[in-house]
Design a protein around this nucleic acid. Structure first.
Lengths: 105, 105
DNA sequence: CCAGTATATGTCCGATCCGACATAGTCGTC
DNA sequence: GACGACTATGTCGGATCGGACATATACTGG
């Protein structure tokens, strides 16, 4: 979000922040959820890149459509383990996973 | 391990391989355990860098010496979640974690 | 040797995770 | 606006994880 938009929103009575502020997370907790979100987003990218549905992809991984949806949503009930295993299972490399975590991509 | 040593060992009746061969892991499984080992190793590095004991470090993280030992050993009972959370809790950055995973460090 | 300190290993049980199912919402096409 | 294909959300039972404790092993200085 650019600065102008922030200003306009705040001027209109909104407070602009992030998950950290709103949920009062510690910096580590915030970093952790951001990291999870990055993996989840990448998982969606990988799937879409192949033109697959959630159901297809889940099956390929030995999971279910509902769980896969939660993975892509970075639901609280999905672990980083599951995200990483799923990405590797879909053919992503360790390097790619690392880059996504490091924010580089 | 360098090639010479491998040859000598194999000549002496040893088979040289890795966890993947021995435990018959799929490539993804192997990549996953290597990734875990890299994080565990980095965790030890971070701790030693500060000159802390396992007990001290564990306490700082709200955990126990025994569990921390298992973390450093990449024990089967520790998740990537725990490793990542612990690293972030000790002050490592998302970037560093990503680099370790990507093998860069 | 022994005491003290550090690290490793085994086990328990409460907490969390995950696959599965059901169901609800979304979007395009006819 | 009904249908079909896709995605999101709620819940449950079995599986795995994690902090704690006990105990074992490793190393060091006296």
């Amino acid at each position: 979000m650019d600065q102008n938009k922030e200003d306009r929103l705040e001027g209109a009575g909104w407070r602009v922040g992030n998950a950290e502020d709103f949920l009062e997370l510690t910096p580590e907790e915030a970093a952790f959820v951001e990291l999870k979100l990055a993996l989840a987003h990448f998982l969606r990218d990988v799937r879409m890149q192949q033109g697959w549905t959630q159901a297809q992809t889940a099956k390929r991984l030995g999971s279910s459509q509902s769980r896969f949806a939660k993975m892509e949503a970075a639901d609280a009930s999905v672990s980083v383990d599951l995200l990483v295993k799923s990405l590797l299972g879909l053919g992503a490399t360790r390097e790619q996973v690392g880059q996504v975590i490091a924010r580089a991509a």
